[in-house]
């Protein structure tokens, strides 16, 4: 379904985002793309939707040679891919229903199809009752569910999610993950870039880890970090925000821990043990609601 072969991406100015990456993802797989900020996760996703072209190497997506595709065929490639982003990208002047319907209308689906499909998908994401609300009247989790609904409305073969839970608290994130899981069970291939340890560890799906543009790990039923690895890993990005909030109350700490993910571990960098235990905490909290 997705194949990257010796893909290297160098941005203008010489920034190497991906270096000789080869990944093969089968139809119906659920894959987590993990790694610190700047490791190339987003670049990889941008290559898949042909927002970027690789500097060298080949990209195949949904049976199409994406890296060789002429520009005018790109829209057709994108119709077989649904995309979810951290910042939702909802249209503020459209209701939930209209936001989802928009994705069908602009590719020319007939009104009758829109009218039957949109309510079904809204039901799938649990927002049937809020179809007439505007994005500003929704919580972050609800907004993200709208954006998932929009990504799935055209029944794509592949669903790409770039940090879909990055702006959400752990409990809400679990809700989003349940929906993504359900979508995956319909046979849709799901690729999710994330920093969220708790989610990766709880789901136990395939994990592809990138570091400085290289694939450093690719394992089935993986966790965010392997036990052998953490002590040696250098502190890449220091989440000062997370550090200060961690000094506050206990519940805030929990929330930040799971929500802003990888950063939460950084203060504990020197001692390897606290990090995994901290991850265990939120994942328990998540399963309860």
């Amino acid at each position: 379904m997705i194949r990257l072969e010796n893909v290297t991406k160098v941005y203008e100015g010489g920034v190497v985002a991906l270096k000789d990456v080869t990944v093969d993802i089968q139809k119906g797989e659920f894959v987590f793309l993990v790694g610190p900020s700047g490791s190339g996760k987003s670049t990889l996703i941008r290559l898949l939707i042909r927002e970027e072209l690789p500097t060298s190497g080949d990209v195949w997506v949904a049976g199409k040679h994406a890296s060789q595709l002429p520009n005018w065929k790109v829209p057709h490639l994108r119709r077989s891919i649904g995309t979810v982003f951290q910042d939702f990208k909802l249209l503020p002047n459209k209701t939930v229903y209209e936001n989802v319907a928009f994705a069908m209308e602009v590719i020319g689906k007939p009104k009758s199809v829109v009218r039957t499909q949109v309510p079904q998908v809204l039901k799938l994401v649990g927002l049937s009752a809020k179809a007439d609300r505007y994005p500003r009247q929704l919580s972050g989790g609800e907004q993200q569910r709208v954006s998932v609904a929009r990504a799935f409305i055209n029944r794509p073969l592949i669903l790409l999610a770039d940090e879909p839970t990055g702006n959400l608290d752990p409990a809400t994130s679990v809700g989003i993950m349940r929906i993504l899981d359900r979508i995956n069970r319909t046979g849709t291939t799901v690729v999710m870039a994330t920093h969220d340890h708790a989610i990766v560890d709880a789901m136990r799906r395939r994990v592809v880890e990138l570091e400085r543009g290289r694939v450093v790990r690719d394992e089935h039923r993986g966790v965010y970090e392997t036990l052998e690895q953490p002590p040696s890993r250098p502190t890449a990005v220091v989440g000062t925000d997370a550090a200060t909030v961690t000094d506050g109350t206990a519940d805030v700490e929990l929330e930040v821990d799971a929500a802003t993910d990888a950063d939460a571990e950084e203060p504990a960098g020197p001692e390897p043990e606290p990090a995994p235990s901290a991850e265990a905490g939120p994942s328990e909290v998540e399963e309860s609601p």
């Binding site: 939707i49 005018w72 790109v74 829209p75 057709h76 490639l77 994108r78 119709r79 077989s80 891919i81 649904g82 995309t83 990208k89 249209l91 928009f102 994705a103 602009v106 590719i107 020319g108 929009r150 055209n154």
Partner: peptide, 17 residues
């Protein structure tokens, strides 16, 4: 621009946009 971004993401054709 926001609408256009989403149109492009969901695969609206260039002519449609």
């Amino acid at each position: 621009r926001e609408e256009i971004e989403i149109m492009r993401l969901v695969g609206a054709s260039n002519w449609f946009i």
